[in-house]
Simulated assay, not measured.
Amino acid sequence: MTFLEFLLILLVLYYVIYVLLWIVLDCNVALWYKSRFGVSLSSMRGQVVWITGASRGIGRALALSLARHGVRLVLSARRVEQLEQVQSECLAAARGLLAQKDVLILPMDMLELEKHQSHLYTVLNHFEKLDVLVNNAGRSQRANWTDISVEVDRELFELDVFSVVHLSRLVVRYFLEQNGGRGHLAATSSIAGFSPVPFSATYCAAKHALNAYLLALKVEQRKLDITIFAPGPVATDFLQEAFTGSQGTKVGLSTANQKRLTAERCGELFAVSLANKMDLTWCGLFPVNFLAYCARNSTLTKILAQFMTEKTLNKIREGKL
């Protein structure tokens, strides 16, 4: 066997193993590696992390994962009662690493842009610093492309894109003025943000737009850490509040008994991506993780398009396949 043949065999084995990992893992390979051998979550102990949409789902799960390692938290959402419950859960999970003053409840409506600055001042007055902003608040959508009213397009973009960008700009200005341009900005995106799925056109567009905003920021501000976390289907009540194609209506469906990643696992992986300051990560059960990898390759995307109908893609997206 020549040296060139040996190298060719190694290359083939590498790609075979890599594809197998796409199938077996519930996240991208880099994130899985960091969860095993990367920076420990304990490295974030004492940092201040502000999480929007923290009252349930991924935001709640992320807060609990960070609290277990002594990360100080700001919990924001509209429902005070739910935030108080999450605060109690975080303090219990911390096992003495956090006191009540270390988990701040900050009720807020992301759409009230005029209050964003005062909310930031509240965080800074309480903790005297902010290390990480996690933009997690948002809503999904289920609707046929042709049935979506432009009013719904505007409402979804206002919540999932413009409110996030507005709050992020205020925090980035703080990072630039107080930390010499250093800080960490994160957002809950979606695999739909780089791999469009059927029956959610506005949501897909919003996540694509959010990704572009954050990636453009990274180009301009190289000292900033930017984390785009893109889950696939997760077992939360996300569909209860999801937009439809008509203004003022909600999907109102449950995700129970569907094949979805648990919110707890999703929050754990999100926490790992923050601790390791990863730029783009994603998670999802097979075949979602496999399809996410394929979507990052234009050739594989074209090949899959020949075999995947919109009905098949929708079954995968809804955890029915």
Rank of each mutant, 00 (worst) to 15 (best):
T2C: 10
F3N: 09
E5D: 12
I9T: 10
Y15I: 05
V19N: 02
L21F: 13
L25T: 07
C27Y: 07
V29Y: 00
V29W: 05
Y33W: 15
S35T: 10
S35G: 10
F37D: 02
V39E: 13
G46R: 04
G46K: 05
Q47V: 01
V49G: 04
I51P: 00
G59K: 05
R60T: 04
A61L: 02
A61M: 06
L64D: 00
H69Q: 14
G70Q: 02
G70D: 07
G70H: 07
R72A: 02
L75Y: 05
R78Q: 13
E81D: 15
Q82T: 11
L83G: 02
A92N: 09
A93N: 01
R95N: 14
L97F: 03
L98P: 04
I105H: 03
D109P: 06
E114V: 11
H116I: 09
H116Q: 15
H119A: 14
H119V: 01
L120E: 06
L120F: 00
T122E: 11
T122F: 00
T122D: 12
H126M: 05
E128P: 01
D131E: 08
L133E: 01
G138E: 02
T146H: 14
T146N: 13
D147Y: 07
V150D: 13
V152P: 09
D153S: 15
R154N: 10
L156Y: 10
E158P: 00
E158N: 15
V161Y: 11
F162A: 09
V164Q: 15
R169Q: 15
F175I: 00
H184T: 07
T188W: 05
T188A: 11
F194D: 05
P196M: 07
C204Q: 02
A205F: 08
A205H: 05
A212P: 00
V219N: 10
Q221C: 10
T227K: 03
P231Y: 06
V234E: 01
D237T: 12
Q240H: 14
E241G: 11
T244R: 09
G248E: 08
T249M: 11
T249G: 03
G252L: 10
A256H: 09
R260W: 01
C266W: 06
A271L: 06
N276L: 05
K277Q: 14
T281E: 12
G284V: 02
P287R: 02
N289Y: 03
L291W: 07
C294A: 15
L300H: 02
I303W: 11
I303L: 14
A305M: 08
Q306C: 14
F307M: 09
F307S: 08
F307W: 13
T312I: 15
T312Y: 12
K315D: 14
I316P: 02
